[in-house]
Structure formats: structure tokens, C-alpha cells
Write a protein that binds this DNA or RNA. Structure first.
Lengths: 117, 117
DNA sequence: CAAACCTATCAATGATCGTTGATGGATGGC
DNA sequence: GCCATCCATCAACGATCATTGATAGGTTTG
């Protein structure tokens, strides 16, 4: 398996390009319980913010903040319809995250013996 | 596919148990470029801290901090040997993360039509 | 034992994040 | 037009995080 998109392609180092930025943003978006619960809720299908505030019984601006983090990371998409804005999971982003993890996992299977300092 | 371990098992809500905590810790550990690069480096096999500081050309306490975050999340394990401490990837944790993502991804495939507010 | 080395931990600082309440723009119903 | 509803954004605050330099414990070497 090739390196997933999230890893730098070619020879440029991550230090100079900061190309792990997308992965960092994805994982950061996933590193909050409220956001994970939002994604969990969106598994049932697209839902508007008012619906989510009903389910979560919390302030609207709070969910709006978290939905924006998820949207910026690409994990959800929004679709305006009249007065409402419907959010839904973006499975493509989830696939990217999965590829990233799989890449780590598989490569570590053929670990080389430790080098001496 | 069943819910992976990271999701709550049984009927208890995440609000009362905070059982998404493990997932949050895993994703938080992955949400930093330095830590991702550490994991990337450890794909070559177990390495001691002095070796990593050589590669990363940075302060030892900084890497020690990040290695601890990775260790607390279960993503790496450490093995003391004499004067050195060797760190290596923990593929089991990576598998848990993968299961978590797959669970989200697969369930979202049969999305239901949006409910009216 | 002393010196050199490897590493974890601590305290302090600046940066980033999450929450809250308030404001304003946009839409639909009357 | 007017009001109610839905939502994003802003400012302010406390909390958490990442970095840095210093310190200390443990190990090997001489």
C-alpha cells in the first residue's frame, strides 16, 4: 500500500512543508467528546443544528463552534435549505483517516532491530 | 460489525460515563505534528530517546513530553535497557483507532432521510 | 567513588482551545 | 412590513496544552 494522501508525497520533509497539517486537523477535530458524539449522532443521517441542540440539550453556539471545527477538518458537510442548515458525515474524510492509520499499522509490522546509540 | 471497544458498550450514555475518553485521548495524541512525526519515525523499529533527539534535532524534554502523551494514549510502549529507554509503536492501539473509524464510516453508508424540525 | 550519560519530571510562560452570552444576518409565516 | 425562528460569529474568560530551561534519579565507565 502506498502512503496515504495525508503523508507527505515525494521527498520534502514535514518540517519544511508542514504537510502533516491536514492529519493534525483531522485528529484534532476527533479529539473532543462533544465532536465525537456529534459524528455519532450524524450516523443516523443528515440533521439540522436545531435538531442537534434538541438531542444534546446544550447551547446553540456551542454546537455551532464544534460543527465548524468538524467542517473545517472536512469530516462533515453542510447543506443550507431554507431556514435550516443540514449537516452530514463526509465518508471520504473518514476513509482518509483510516488510510492514515492503516499505513502506520502495516509498516510497523516489519520492525527492524534497534540501532545502538 | 459490532461497535469497537472505544464506543460505549451497553446502554450507558457517554454523558454519564465519559466512555469516549479513551478515543479522545487517542485522537488527541495523534493531533500534533511532532507526535505524528515521532510515530512515523518509530515505524522503522524501536528507538531510544537519544536517537530520536538526534533525528529531530530538538530538546530532550520536549520529546520526552510528547512520548509520554503517546505512551499514556497507548500508542507506544517503552522498554528500559540499561541507560536507555526504547520506544516502539503499539499496533494494537492503532487497530483500535482503525476500528473506531471503520465503525463510523460503515454505519454512515445507510443514511436515513433528514427529519423535519 | 567520581564523572559522564540518558531520561523523566518540574515550574514557568505563552499559545491554543472550549464555553458562554450577546449580536446580527437570513429566512419563512402572518 | 413585522415578528419569530434558525444559525454563524464575536468578545471575554477560564482551562488545557506545548515549549523551555533546570533539576534529579538511575546507569555505565573509568
Amino acid at each position: 500500500m502506498n502512503q496515504p494522501i495525508l503523508i507527505y508525497k515525494g521527498g520534502m520533509t514535514t518540517a519544511t512543508t508542514g504537510s502533516l497539517g491536514k492529519a493534525v486537523r483531522l485528529f484534532h477535530a476527533l479529539s473532543d467528546e462533544t465532536r465525537l458524539r456529534l459524528l455519532e449522532q450524524l450516523r443516523e443521517g443528515e440533521q439540522c443544528v436545531c435538531e442537534l441542540t434538541d438531542v444534546f440539550k446544550t447551547g446553540q453556539s456551542r454546537l455551532s463552534f464544534h460543527l465548524r471545527v468538524l467542517k473545517d477538518a472536512g469530516l462533515v458537510t453542510d447543506r443550507p435549505e431554507g431556514r435550516w442548515i443540514y449537516y452530514s458525515l463526509d465518508r471520504e474524510a473518514l476513509r482518509e483517516v483510516e488510510d492514515f492509520i492503516v499505513w502506520f499499522k502495516e509498516s510497523s509490522s516489519r520492525a527492524m532491530p534497534a540501532r545502538r546509540c
